[in-house]
Simulated scan of single mutants.
Amino acid sequence: MSQNSLSVNTAATQKSAVQLDDIAQRIERVMNLARETVAVQSAGADKVSVTAANTFNTVAKTFDEQMTAGTKVMREVSTAITTHGASVTQVDDEVATTIVFV
C-alpha cells in the first residue's frame, strides 16, 4: 500500500519567491545601467571596423533581449510560487477545519 504525502514549507517557498524576484530586479538594474555603455562605435570607417562594431552591437542587443526575457520568466516563476504557496495554505486551512477528532 502506497502512502502519498505532501509537505510544503510555505514560509520557505515564499522567501524563495521573494529572493528570486530580488535577483530579477538586480539583473534588470545592471542591464539598464550597462545598456548604454556596451554600445560600440566603429574604430574607423573601413569595412572591418564597421562590421566588427555592428557584430558586437548585435550580440549585445541579443544578450539584452535574452536577459530581459529571462528576468520576465524569473518573475513569472516567483509569482507562481507565491500563488501556489498561498493556495496550499488555504486548502490546508480548509481541510484542517473539517477534521473531527474522536
Rank of each mutant, 00 (worst) to 15 (best):
V30D: 01
E65P: 03
S42D: 00
S49A: 15
D46H: 07
N54T: 09
D46Q: 03
F63M: 05
S87H: 04
L20T: 13
V102H: 13
T13W: 06
T62P: 00
R29H: 05
S42P: 11
T98S: 11
K72F: 08
M67F: 09
A17Y: 00
E36N: 11
A34R: 00
T62F: 05
I99T: 11
N4E: 12
E36C: 01
T10F: 00
V30F: 03
K61R: 10
E65T: 13
Q3G: 14
V48A: 13
S5N: 14
V18D: 15
T13Y: 08
D22N: 14
T83S: 13
Q3V: 15
T37A: 04
Q41P: 02
S2F: 15
I27F: 08
S7M: 07
S42W: 04
V30L: 07
M1G: 15
Q25G: 07
T83F: 05
D92F: 06
F101I: 12
R35V: 02
T51G: 12
S7H: 12
A53G: 03
K15P: 06
T58A: 09
K72A: 13
I27W: 06
A53D: 07
V95W: 06
M1C: 14
V50K: 12
R75M: 06
T98E: 10
K15H: 14
V48H: 12
V91Y: 04
V18G: 13
V59L: 13
D46W: 06
V8E: 02
R26Q: 08
N32F: 00
V38C: 01
R29M: 03
T89Q: 13
T62E: 04
V8Y: 02
Q41T: 10
A24P: 07
V73I: 10
F101D: 09
E65S: 12
V40D: 00
A12S: 11
V30G: 01
F63G: 03
Q66M: 04
T68G: 10
M67V: 11
M31C: 02
I23R: 04
Q14R: 12
V100Q: 14
G85A: 03
D92I: 01
Q41I: 02
K47S: 14
V50P: 04
G70I: 03
F63S: 04
D21F: 06
V18E: 15
K61G: 10
